[in-house]
């Protein structure tokens, strides 16, 4: 098997002051997959994600990109962040420009693209996130969901290979979640590798190819979604609960693999049966 795009190897991280945030952490991000990092709130998921684009530097252990240990000099970091796009949970931490178009143009211009290319990237990203009509709107007049999409567009415009999203659905209403997942599906089909952190087991079950269960500063297990989420005891120890659809499937004694994993898929199948 080829080396994963990004691998975290024996990572330990202490906050300044010595509090241990992450320890003995291993994680593999493989090309073209959708990986969910699943953990309770405040378990240190964000701290881990901030290692994936070189924002934080491990106290021990290392991050490997294409099998090579990552370097933290200026040029390597620029290159790294060109390949790994990180979307923070709080869009206001990321949006700084006065209009949506201007904000989205920031990344491409930092890549050294020309103004014409930047305009192309910006309109492409706004289309992808379906917020083209908001291009000239003032950032501070957007709703939370719109801000979130604008923040993602700012990263998408840089065309990263790996898109890392911190709690992408947090704070969105169900309509916003559906919309966002549609966008992410398109980006994934266009070739992006997706990594997202979440505490929502149902979301991980319906969406991810792989799940990494995160608890007390480390990844307890990383594996195929159904296998990992079928392990109720392990989830319970990580203060999580198995997804409803999976529990129902288990209770019915059905083959888990053959059953729908999202509410939409389940309803569609039920309708077909009738």
């Amino acid at each position: 098997m080829t080396a994963p795009l990004l691998a975290v190897d024996g990572l330990k991280y202490c906050y300044p002051g010595g509090v241990v945030a992450l320890r003995d952490l291993n994680l593999k991000i493989r090309k073209g997959r959708k990986l969910a990092i699943l953990g309770a709130n405040g378990s240190g998921k964000t701290t881990l994600l901030l290692h994936l684009n070189g924002t934080f530097r491990p106290t021990h252990g290392e991050i490997r990109i294409d099998g090579q240990p990552a370097a933290y000099d200026r040029r390597s970091l620029i290159n790294w962040r060109r390949r790994v796009g990180l979307v923070l949970q709080e869009p206001d931490d990321q949006l700084f420009a006065a209009t949506v178009e201007q904000d989205v143009s920031f990344g491409p211009l930092n890549l050294g693209l020309s103004e014409a290319e930047t305009r192309e990237r910006v309109s492409e990203a706004l289309e992808a996130l379906r917020i083209a009509p908001l291009a000239q709107r003032a950032t501070h007049t957007l709703s939370f969901g719109q801000k979130k999409r604008a923040a993602i567009a700012g990263i998408v415009a840089m065309r990263p290979e790996i898109l890392v999203l911190d709690e992408p659905t947090a704070g969105l209403d169900s309509h916003g979640v559906t919309h966002l997942l549609g966008v992410l599906r398109q980006l994934h089909e266009a070739g992006a590798t997706l990594v997202f952190s979440t505490h929502d087991v149902e979301l991980a079950y319906g969406w991810a190819d792989e799940v990494a269960v995160f608890h007390e500063g480390t990844v307890r297990i990383q594996g195929e979604t159904t296998a990992v989420l079928g392990n109720g005891e392990l989830l319970h120890r990580a203060r999580l609960r198995p997804p409803l659809l999976l529990e129902v499937a288990q209770a019915l004694g059905a083959d888990v693999e053959s059953l729908p994993r999202t509410r939409e898929a389940l309803l569609a199948q039920l309708r077909e049966r009738r």
Binding site: F96, S105, N110
Partner: peptide
């Protein structure tokens, strides 16, 4: 706190000291 987090957010997008953006055409 916000300044610190904005710094992280901008760095993730290749910020190296210039806040260059497009001017509307």
């Amino acid at each position: 706190d916000r300044a610190r987090r904005l710094d992280i957010g901008l760095a993730a997008r290749g910020y190296t000291g210039d806040l260059r953006v497009l001017t509307p055409d």
